[in-house]
Amino acid sequence: MTIALRLAQFVFLLLSAPLLLGAITRLKAILQRRRGASIWRPYAELGKLFRKEDLVPGSASWLFRAAPRLAFALTVTAVAFLPIVWSNGLLSFAGDFIVLVYLLAFARFLMMLGAFDGGSSFGGMGASREAMVSVLAEAPLVLSLVALAVAARAGSLTAIVAWTGAQDFFNISVVHVLAFAALTLVAIAETGRLPVDNPATHLELTMLHEAMVLEYSGPSLALIEWAQAIKLNLMIALLIALFAPWGIASGVTAGAILLSIGLYVVKLGIAIVAIAVLESCVAKLRMYAVPEIFGIAAALSILAIVFTLMMKR
């Protein structure tokens, strides 16, 4: 029974990812007084791309097509660690959050190679910018997770979530506030959202992620876009699980699970509104202003660690 629940939440995270994108886009359109596209549009786009043919540059190697597929698999695997409505992730072991971070790093590594294999300047350009972001994102990401792990004296995500869930809602520690701020900044940058990257742009010279995948088309592009949506879903789910796990089900009763699902949807809704509002009132950062975000995130996460250690004493 529990394994079914763990599997169900894993599959839910994968399948709901495009819907999340659609909801954010629609909400942003409404904020701009436009009607906006249907929230189901990302599914239609994926379906369209899956039906199209896969264009491969003549100079490319097999890696060009393997990269998005493997990267997709790695991103999917990273999702398996997350508890969202049921308190156990599909996979869970000591140090799993490090594996999560590095699975995403591996996915990006492959996509950067795929960009090089395309053989155009745009791919290299996008990859080099992505490299800058990923190089700088990893340290604050790991540091803030370490801060939480140390605070919870736990080695796995599931254990951290369980510990946080056992705390009093009103007794939230400064560690959580700091780590939350740091992780949010990293999540924005990692998922290529504003103000770091513009997911809707068509200008090949300004893009980060989109320039990197410029050579891709058809099913390969569909997997890349889906993986990108999953990554956004993953980051939001991670933030919710780590900082607002209250209500997550741990007993196998229909009531508890339904409550947990309801609460999760509410939390997710708040996240969607927050993203849409934020993205509507800022401009994209200058490229070399992006590292400053990571500087702030790193500082916040180091502070979180310092407070964790002080709290223990």
Binding site: E53, P57, R65, F122, G218
Partner: peptide, 15 residues
């Protein structure tokens, strides 16, 4: 699963 998705591959020059 990702590899098994049916795809039609066509080789084309780099854009």
């Amino acid at each position: 699963a990702a590899i098994l998705i049916r795809t039609v591959v066509r080789y084309a020059p780099t854009w």
